[in-house]
């Protein structure tokens, strides 16, 4: 019943997303693309943080790795798919490496280790001009071609991004629903019990980091042709922080949480027509309030509100 309802909701949302940019001009399509791109990165972070319970403040650096890899490959006139694959695999491997500290330390220690990693990535991107273009960055990345179809138009690129995002969501869904995904959750809830049930905690932690990072790489592979200009500043620690907030605001460990959280961060300020500075302040205050009142994020809040009348009804019966 519940799965049924969710399937209908997803179908409605996808249909809405297909018609949303029609007749709206390029800017709306661009905005929707950046939202979907960040949603992919946030979904990956949600696997690491929400499902496996390991904090990471390095997701922006993985978007960066994916974006630089894609840019370098496509600027050398190889196809986008190759660039994307290089970026995703690279992120998977680096994420695996970054997972090792997570085996030893937790919580804020891990937060700072990953933050340090993001800062290191920023330094490398800024200093290694021969590879990354240094502070000037890279520009003019071509949009991908799918067979005979070019996605150089904003609308075409939007549908391409939507397809990639849906595919990414589907794959993540399969991962989360598989015995693996349940093992991730067991890991978050009670590590000792997870281990005593025979789960390989080491491997699961590393995998959570690697897959989560690979999603960051995929987002980067979208960002490069979307913005067609990247520089180290686009992937700094502030960006990682904002991705983390997206995941938490949406709802940790909620499958659709990151999609909602990134919408709040990207689409809502546009819809409300407030300037970025005021919006960020209000957003920060809202996050603090949300954390004190409802650490489960917006989806947690919605669940709580939905559960309330049911309880009242139950009370009336008894």
């Amino acid at each position: 019943m519940r799965a049924h309802r969710e399937a209908i909701a997803v179908a409605v949302v996808v249909a809405a997303l297909i018609v949303a940019p029609l007749g709206q001009g390029n800017y709306i399509a661009y905005l929707l693309c950046s939202w979907l791109m960040l949603a992919i990165a946030a979904m990956g972070l949600n696997l690491t943080l929400g499902y496996a319970g390991r904090i990471s403040l390095a997701q922006a650096s993985f978007i960066g790795i994916g974006a630089y890899a894609t840019s370098i490959v496509t600027l050398a006139h190889y196809p986008w798919v190759l660039g994307m694959a290089v970026g995703v695999v690279l992120c998977f491997l680096v994420g695996l490496l970054l997972g090792f500290p997570a085996l030893r330390v937790r919580g804020h220690y891990l937060a700072f280790v990953t933050l340090a990693f993001n800062s290191l990535f920023f330094l490398v991107a800024r200093n290694e001009d021969w590879l990354t273009g240094g502070t000037y960055g890279l520009s003019g990345m071509p949009r991908p071609r799918i067979g005979p179809v070019s996605t150089s138009g904003q609308l075409a690129f939007y549908y391409f991004t939507l397809a990639v995002a849906l595919l990414a969501a589907l794959v993540l869904r399969l991962i989360v629903r598989s015995p693996w995904g349940r093992a991730f959750k067991a890991l978050r809830e009670n590590e000792v019990r997870a281990e005593s049930l025979g789960l390989d905690v080491r491997r699961l932690t590393l995998l959570a980091f690697a897959i989560g990072s690979a999603y960051g790489g995929l987002a980067g592979a979208i960002e490069a042709p979307l913005v067609q200009y990247i520089d180290p500043g686009s992937f700094d620690v502030v960006q990682s922080l904002s991705l983390l907030l997206m995941v938490v605001v949406g709802g940790l460990g909620e499958f659709w949480g990151p999609v909602l959280g990134s919408a709040v961060a990207v689409l809502l300020p546009e819809a409300l027509r407030v300037t970025a500075a005021y919006y960020l302040m209000l957003y920060a205050i809202a996050v603090i309030l949300l954390m004190t009142r409802c650490p489960g994020g917006l989806i947690g809040l919605a669940r709580r509100i939905a559960a309330r009348p049911a309880r009242r009804r139950g009370a009336a019966v008894s």
Binding site: G107, A111, L241, V248, L252, Y278, M281, Y283, A284
Partner: peptide, 26 residues
């Protein structure tokens, strides 16, 4: 957050850092 704030408290202080920065900037 009570005696053991955990992750939500960490997130709240991150949001606070954004708030202070943006407030000064604006």
């Amino acid at each position: 957050f009570g005696p053991d704030g955990g992750l939500p408290l960490v997130i709240a202080t991150m949001a606070l850092s954004i708030l202070l920065k943006e407030a000064v900037k604006t």
